[in-house]
Amino acid sequence: MAEKELQTTLQQLRQTLQSHNYQQSTSLLSKAKLALLNLNTLIPRESSSRKHLQLARETLELGAIISIRLKDTVSFTRYFQQLQPFYSLPESSLPHDGSHASKVTGLYLLLLLSEGDYAGFHTLLETLEVAAAQAGIKLEDDQCIQYPIRLEQALMEGSYDKVWGETKREKMPSEEFGLFAEILIGTIRKEIASCSERAYPSIPISDAKSLLFLDSEGSVVNFAKESGWVVRDGRIYFPQQEDDYLSKDILVTSDQVIENTLGYARELETIV
């Protein structure tokens, strides 16, 4: 009885996901997890049947995806952790077919990246690489995993223009990845703002608009005030830094980052 009820609930969950009815999704998830408890399959056991394991995995994966749609990263992290025992099961116990492991794992990597947890990012990536090697799988063929890897590499290089380009919807593996775009662009703005303060005493508001990927000069003024900058006569003035804080290397690096990003932003505006 519990299995049939769970299958019906999962079908309804898929429908709410397609229709973006997330309020109903939440109540259905609670119902599905209760059914899993009744089946004693919320955690994989040796006595669990393959069918029950598949139902449990799908329930938790749908929960993870719905959490991302709701921008509930705490809930998403919990679902990701609950899924790990299922993902570690051998193919003979739980076939990989029908699983969203790639998407869920790629989204978790992106979450770590957006939170600046580079240590966690690389630890998980190393684990994935070992597992892929043991299974004879090429990780570079997995677009959901490669997407956050490309973003991390661009961030480490200071190539913020590449990060900006990757956050375009057509570059993303699925709709869920787009929900991190705002967080990542916020990260870019903070990094570029920090470089700008080190590189120049002031810049025109018009340049700041392109540089920070903001849609209006009013947005630039608001961002400047939040950052503690001074806006006067069409320019943004940065607080003076301590002389010993500004080395030549920092200035050159910051200048290159800003010029590259500003050039890309201007080209983008021309295309649009």
Rank of each mutant, 00 (worst) to 15 (best):
G263Y: 11
S47D: 12
A132H: 06
H122Y: 15
L212D: 06
L29C: 03
Q15L: 14
L179C: 00
A135L: 05
Y79E: 09
L17R: 07
S92T: 12
W164S: 12
Q241K: 04
K162D: 04
T261C: 02
A133E: 07
A265M: 07
L113M: 06
L110Q: 14
V272Q: 12
L139E: 09
S49N: 06
F223E: 09
T127R: 09
L179N: 00
T16W: 00
I192V: 15
S114M: 12
F238I: 04
P90N: 06
F80N: 04
S27C: 02
R235K: 15
Y160S: 03
D117F: 15
R78V: 15
A199M: 11
Q256W: 08
S25H: 03
Q11P: 01
I188A: 05
P95T: 13
T127L: 05
N21V: 12
G116S: 10
D249E: 11
L184Q: 03
L6A: 05
A199F: 12
G178M: 05
S219Q: 15
G165S: 04
Q12Y: 06
K51D: 13
K31W: 05
F213G: 01
E126P: 01
A181D: 01
L89E: 10
D207V: 14
L17Y: 14
Q84T: 14
Q82D: 12
I68R: 05
H52Q: 04
I203W: 04
Q7A: 09
E267W: 03
Q7P: 01
L211G: 04
S227W: 02
L211E: 10
L125M: 15
L179P: 01
I271K: 11
K103I: 14
A56P: 08
G98C: 01
I43N: 00
E126K: 06
Q143T: 13
Y22H: 11
R150T: 15
Y200G: 00
S75I: 11
L62C: 06
T77E: 10
G106F: 02
S216V: 03
R169V: 13
M172F: 00
I205W: 12
I68S: 08
E152I: 05
K103D: 02
I43Y: 11
G178T: 03
Q256N: 12
A135W: 04
E126N: 14
E176K: 02
L184N: 00
I192L: 15
L36M: 13
Q256K: 15
H52S: 10
Q81C: 05
H96Y: 14
D161T: 10
P44W: 04
I250Y: 08
